[in-house]
Design a protein around this nucleic acid. Structure first.
Length: 251
DNA sequence: TAAGCGTGGGC
DNA sequence: TGCCCAAGCTT
């Protein structure tokens, strides 16, 4: 849930989920569509699908227990480098480098004297994160750097005056030079397939049952784009077409 | 490797 | 007010 989503927005949904589905087995017992519905407006609803698939895989392959091994975690749906490391470290005390957007920014500034990390995670960043990882207390180190990035060394207006490592921060010592190079490409949203998909899926989530196509047609004017987006949702497994031509969340 | 994938809050 | 960005993953 936290992938690309602020903690504050995740929290209420997470509480709902943990009450309703306290274990992977409980979630796996429901249709994937229920996960998509309970996802609400968190965004990137494919994550709901993958979380459901992950719960199913854990139930079938790991007897309902969340694996503690990094490689085993990595093999699960929706679990990438970061999430595997976070679970192995925070939940099981394993020694793994945590490289999320916060940590990458802290390292870029404190070590490399740059305002922002590169667009894609580089091998150099991984090497650095590994090199800085303490032998003992790696989980505490990981969460500490994450929190530093999330609360102090923020993207927009870093609170250097209350930063515990301001004295050794290469970026601050260099006078906080502005990000050099091309501006990061903004993620335009209005008018995109993404927005269209969001509109369509919102209709399916709100309805507790099959929806006639006409109910989807009214939320997006451009028919060509609308059909493309709807096909995409079906292809992704986020929606289903029933025999009578109505649409619903997946069973 | 780069593009595609939602949504809402902060500045 | 728009624009930026948020505990990334998959193809």
């Amino acid at each position: 849930m936290l992938q690309q989503t602020p903690v504050a927005r995740v929290l209420p949904v997470w509480h709902e989920w943990m009450t309703r589905w306290p274990t992977p087995k409980a979630l796996a017992a429901e249709p994937s569509g229920e996960a998509v519905r309970a996802w609400g407006r968190l965004g990137y609803p494919r994550r709901a699908l993958r979380l459901h698939a992950c719960a199913t895989a854990i139930t079938e392959r790991h007897d309902g227990e969340v694996p503690s091994d990094h490689a085993t975690l990595l093999a699960l749906p929706g679990i990438g480098e970061y999430t595997a490391a976070a679970v192995a470290s925070f939940a099981y005390g394993g020694r793994h480098a945590i490289l999320d957007t916060n940590v990458r920014r802290v390292f870029a500034r404190a070590v490399r004297a740059e305002e922002y990390p590169p667009t894609a995670t580089s091998a150099a960043e991984r090497r650095l994160a590994e090199a800085l990882l303490p032998e003992l207390g790696a989980a505490l180190w990981g969460v500490a750097v994450m929190e530093l990035g999330a609360l102090v060394c923020t993207a927009r207006a870093p609170r250097c005056e209350s930063c515990p490592i301001a004295g050794v921060c290469a970026w601050r010592l260099a006078g906080k030079p502005a990000h050099a190079g091309p501006a990061r490409k903004g993620q335009t949203y209005a008018g995109t397939d993404r927005q269209c998909r969001g509109r369509l899926l919102a209709v399916l989530r709100a309805a507790h049952g099959p929806v006639p196509k006409a109910a989807l047609d009214v939320v997006w004017d451009d028919a060509v784009q609308r059909e493309r987006a709807l096909d995409g949702l079906v292809a992704d497994g986020l929606a289903e077409v029933l025999e009578d031509g109505t649409y619903s969340l997946p069973a």
